[in-house]
Design a binder for these strands. Structure first.
Length: 480
RNA sequence: GGUCUCAUCGUCUAACGGUUAGGACACCAGGUUUUCAUCCUGGCAAUCGGAGUUCGAUUCUCCGUGAGAUCACCA
């Protein structure tokens, strides 16, 4: 059933003024999902029309972030594409051409006022408790536009009703329509003008962006009309709010760089799932979604209308869930830079064995050293782990030393497969007459000196007979 | 102040106008022959307020209240 609908094309259009935070990721993610779902294209366009705010390296950082999260784009400034260039500062001639059309039609004019005059108008409006409208001061005979003055739209004030895929039907009156600036006096277009031209030229079908643009939407519709363009589909995302407050999550409110989350051991699948579920769900009770499931199930009409708070606890939980979903080989490939320094000389075979033991315990990849150091190097003994242990403290140290001695002898006879070790350990419970709470705790502490570890038989198996025997001997000496 | 938007457990959210208002995170209590984690079981906890429509309202309407966005030569 091939329809006449155009191919879905969405875009992420950040301005290079800083790092990529979760709000930006969500906008990018939803646009990416729509493109993938519709088997269309996802475009990256850099909106660098404000030279003053531009931050060096920011564009590269955004690109790195998108790729790190697997939100790969089909067209963009670094990879090109049929509708380039994809950096607005390289497209100035295009905006001039479109602006000239408006001038020729009498729909754009030069703004002759100084900043001071404009400020006076604003204060006047404020004193009268009205919203400021430039068009109330529209000059009768504006000068010819020579590029040194701002170029403004000669607006056509009217009421608008439009549809938003997320918010539903929206409407406003003519009082919000104004003569907004199309081209600034520095020759660069404003976002308001440039994005409309670019989206049209790039054949974008869906504009997905944050709530902060909803108030400008009627003015954009006015521009589309002046330009003779059919507006694309609009979808407005609610804001992500800061952890504590109710404010929009911004960089100054502690919004973190997404690359920091990756560096802190969060995996991209969890980040994607979490950010998607912040304001969206599929209506079922499913919480964990793979990337493929999100592409299949995502829909704009199920996106929440209100803002959502960013809850790190939930992200942490979700990260653990996604870590457990990875195959051992996948996980192994990702934890590479998280191993403790002492793991340096270990074989990958050995490291994989250890990893399989701790996979279910990892909440972030950064937890790896805490859970595994004693596998790679002899841990320092800490007697208080025994003397302050509720169960072990009841027995005299010499008795504990004896138990370890018996255990060492019995374990020496094992072939050190996990199964056989379990058998040997169970037999030790019989021969010593001790409860697992005592005997197993003792052995576990004596070989790891760690507050926790995987199951005892697995731990011993991976440590190997030589290491276990050596550490038991050392512990026996210490307790004697 | 004008304009627009939003409102369910602490948090993320579900619920053709008819449910004991469901799930998840967090928290608490048990269980899975040691610990920590996982996993399982149970517990705690919500429809902002007031009218109206209706046999019946979390759901529809209106009025409040609260919150957010916007009113730039920023995006």
């Amino acid at each position: 059933m091939e329809s006449s609908h155009p191919i879905v094309r969405t875009r992420f259009a950040p301005s290079p003024t800083g790092f990529m935070h979760v709000g930006g990721v969500r906008t990018a993610l939803f646009a990416w999902l729509i493109a993938r779902q519709g088997h269309g294209q996802f475009v990256l366009r850099i909106e660098d029309t404000d030279q003053k705010r531009e931050v060096d390296g920011s564009a590269d950082h955004l690109i790195t972030s998108l790729n790190a999260l697997g939100l790969h784009y089909d067209e963009g400034p670094d990879i090109g594409g049929p509708y380039g260039p994809y950096r607005q500062s390289d497209r100035l001639a295009i905006y001039t051409t479109w602006a000239q059309k408006l001038i020729d039609q009498g729909r754009a004019y030069a703004d002759p006022y100084s900043a001071e005059e404009l400020q006076t108008f604003r204060e006047l409006a404020k004193n009268e408790k009205r919203a400021f409208l430039y068009r109330n001061h529209r000059p009768e005979h504006p000068p010819t536009w020579d590029g040194t003055m701002p170029l403004r739209l000669k607006s056509d004030p009217k009421a608008y009703t439009w549809h938003d895929e997320v918010m539903g039907d929206l409407q406003t009156g003519p009082e919000v329509i104004d003569d907004i600036i199309l081209i600034k006096s520095d020759g660069f277009p404003t976002y308001n003008f440039a994005h409309i031209v670019d989206d049209a030229e790039m054949k974008i079908t869906h504009i997905i962006r944050g709530q902060e643009f909803i108030a400008s939407q009627p003015n954009y519709l006015n521009i589309y009309e002046a330009l003779g363009l059919t507006p694309p589909i609009f979808a407005t995302m609610p804001h992500i709010l800061g952890e504590s407050g109710t404010k929009k999550l911004g960089k100054r409110d502690g919004a973190k760089d997404v690359l920091d989350y990756l560096a802190d051991g969060y995996i991209e699948e969890a980040l994607i799932n979490f950010i998607a579920s912040l304001g969206w769900n599929d209506g079922t009770e499913q919480e964990i979604f793979t990337r493929e499931e999100l592409i299949e199930k995502f829909s704009l009409d199920r996106v929440q209308h209100s803002g959502a708070r960013f809850d790190e606890q939930r992200l942490l939980w979700m990260n653990g869930q996604h870590i457990r979903l990875l195959s051992l080989d996948e996980l192994y490939a990702r934890v590479d830079r998280f191993w403790p320094a002492s793991a340096g000389s270990a074989t990958s075979e050995h490291k994989k064995q250890i990893l399989s033991l701790v996979q279910d315990r990892l909440k972030t990849l950064k937890d790896l050293p805490l859970l595994t150091t004693y596998f790679f190097s002899d841990p320092p003994a800490n007697l208080t782990m025994i003397t302050e242990n509720k169960q072990l403290a009841k027995l005299p140290l010499t008795e504990l030393a004896h138990l370890l001695s018996v255990s060492r002898d019995a374990l020496t006879l094992s072939d050190y497969t996990a199964d056989h070790l379990q058998l040997t350990l169970n037999q030790l419970l019989d021969t010593t007459g001790q409860k697992p709470g005592i005997l197993f705790s003792l052995i576990r502490i004596a070989v790891s000196w760690a507050p926790f570890s995987p199951s005892l038989n697995d731990t011993l198996s991976v440590l190997g007979k030589a290491t276990v025997t050596k550490r038991l001997d050392q512990a026996i000496q210490l307790l004697s």
